[in-house]
Write a protein that binds this DNA or RNA. Sequence first.
DNA 1: CTACTTGCAAAGAGTTTGCTAGGCC
DNA 2: GGCCTAGCAAACTCTTTGCAAGTAG
Lengths: 146, 146
Amino acid sequence: MSTELKEARRLLRSQGKRVTPQRLLIFEVMQEHGGHLDADELYLLAKEREPRLSLSTVYRTLNLLKEMDLIEELHFDEEHHHYEIKRRGAEHSHLICLGCGEIIEFESPLTDRIKAQITQDHHFQVTGAHVDLKGYCQRCLEGLTK
Amino acid sequence: MSTELKEARRLLRSQGKRVTPQRLLIFEVMQEHGGHLDADELYLLAKEREPRLSLSTVYRTLNLLKEMDLIEELHFDEEHHHYEIKRRGAEHSHLICLGCGEIIEFESPLTDRIKAQITQDHHFQVTGAHVDLKGYCQRCLEGLTK
DNA sequence: CTACTTGCAAAGAGTTTGCTAGGCC
DNA sequence: GGCCTAGCAAACTCTTTGCAAGTAG
């Protein structure tokens, strides 16, 4: 289990909130997906694993996680909210296997170079970077060619 | 669902616009038809699938998609506008301002270099990349220091 | 056991649609 | 006249709420 997920459990407990499968599922999906999701996208993704999940639980959980400062609500717009998990520690990128779903974390000096380049070219102060690559891991590639 | 359609959904959402069947239908018809269509042709084609669709919705949606830079308005002559879907580069990255929510698209050869590096180092076949940088745009930075 | 949570249905807030009737070259 | 927009009630999207049933501690 990931460090973030354990942290989430601990925080829920310490605030007298209950650790339910739904909450963990929602948190996990957000974590795995990395990029920004809105409530409905998250709902559909989570529903694949737990079909009885309800949309209102997604909304309630998002509000809860937000109150606990575990996720960030991004206001791309006044009306619509996106959410993302707050990360601790060193920034890292994700390699997501579309075959088996495995997530490999990696770090690359190139991401820092992108940040530097953008800061320079667009007069934009970069505070965080999400780099997610999707594709197929070696194991799945071998499976596919069998 | 096609990648473009998903992208359209995402863009609508991220701008606080609602994802309606009419908007998706119009976008889909444009996509399937490929070439350029004028409002009336598009209206007739879309109406085959959703007879209650109104012409003003077609115009409103075309203007919306144009504002979102998803389609292009072509002026072959003064009287008549044609529209076609903008081809979007295979990979485009995002610069997201946490202050005002503006989303700037950019491309960087560095993203390709990351892909190449990962392919080599992790024996992973990369099929797609998401690079989202968050931070503050110049306008918001100036606002903050006031 | 008891209080907190969930799923469902339905309400609420705000946007979008379909009409009809114009406006503009 | 042909192409596009405006105004407005009705319909819809997205989010929240109320409540009975279910579950964590």
